[in-house]
Simulated scan of single mutants.
Amino acid sequence: MKISRLVLPFVTAAVLAGCSATGPHLKSSVSEGVAGIEARLPYANYSNYFGYVDSSVQPEGKYKGKDTYYLYAWVPAAVDEIGVSMMSPAVSKPEGADFKHANFTPGMQKDADKFFDTYIVFDRLNIIDNTKIKNGGKVLQNLGRNDDTSELPANPSGANYNSLLRKTTSMNNASEALVRGVYRISFTSFRSNVEGSFEATIGTNVPGVKIAASLEELHELVNGNKL
């Protein structure tokens, strides 16, 4: 697949500038042949979230009977593709514009080696007005789920139990289009308890994606102190 002229300058910039956290691991569905080898190209923009789950972090829902935790993302414009990955334990340190849960630093100081098998579910919510993020909404449709992938580094046990998924927009079905709005990442584990650090990454070709652990926090990130 050839990358479009519109996306190429952004991708080139991303390659030259480098990507923090899992950026180099999470790649787009677009591939290009280099010296006879087909390689996936990076997204133009990455947004990273670092968290730590212990007994002080309460689950927010259930997925197939398992305790589930949520992250919420604001995507400020229609986009051709969204990629999502989650790795545990966190293999990088937060930097620059990365988002970080308040529990991350104390959790890492307590036990930086604790990790879990990640399972992620990606949904689109019916929130498209940034001024109404705090009011909440409902899931419109599921955009994908993933348990294990060999595209990400293995966890400390040597198993490929980290998660990655990609969703491209639909040109023929408006309800499946990746429009401006709020998206939710649900995460749990089917092989262990959800305990330890993680880094979640969203890759897109638009700037300005923000991630938070609650809709109230996301509202503030997007709109400033307008709660």
Rank of each mutant, 00 (worst) to 15 (best):
R166D: 04
A159K: 14
L215K: 09
G36C: 13
N45R: 03
V91N: 06
E38D: 12
K138D: 06
E220G: 06
D117R: 13
S28L: 06
Q58F: 08
A97Y: 07
D111E: 12
P156V: 09
V11M: 03
M86C: 10
S55E: 15
I211N: 06
F10H: 10
L227G: 06
N126M: 04
S157P: 03
I202M: 09
S56G: 09
F10D: 10
S31F: 10
I185M: 11
F198S: 01
T201M: 06
V57S: 10
Y49R: 00
K132T: 13
G196A: 05
K114C: 12
V206A: 01
K134G: 00
S20V: 04
V30A: 15
S47D: 01
H101E: 13
A174L: 07
A35E: 15
E60G: 14
Q109E: 15
V79K: 01
L227K: 08
D80M: 08
Q141M: 10
A39W: 04
F187K: 03
N173M: 06
S170G: 03
M87D: 01
Y49D: 00
G136N: 04
G196S: 05
K226L: 09
F99P: 00
N103T: 15
A13D: 03
A44W: 03
N172A: 12
Y183D: 05
G83R: 08
K110H: 11
V57H: 09
P106Y: 06
A17S: 05
L16R: 02
G107F: 03
T68I: 07
E60H: 01
L140V: 07
K138W: 01
D147K: 11
L165D: 07
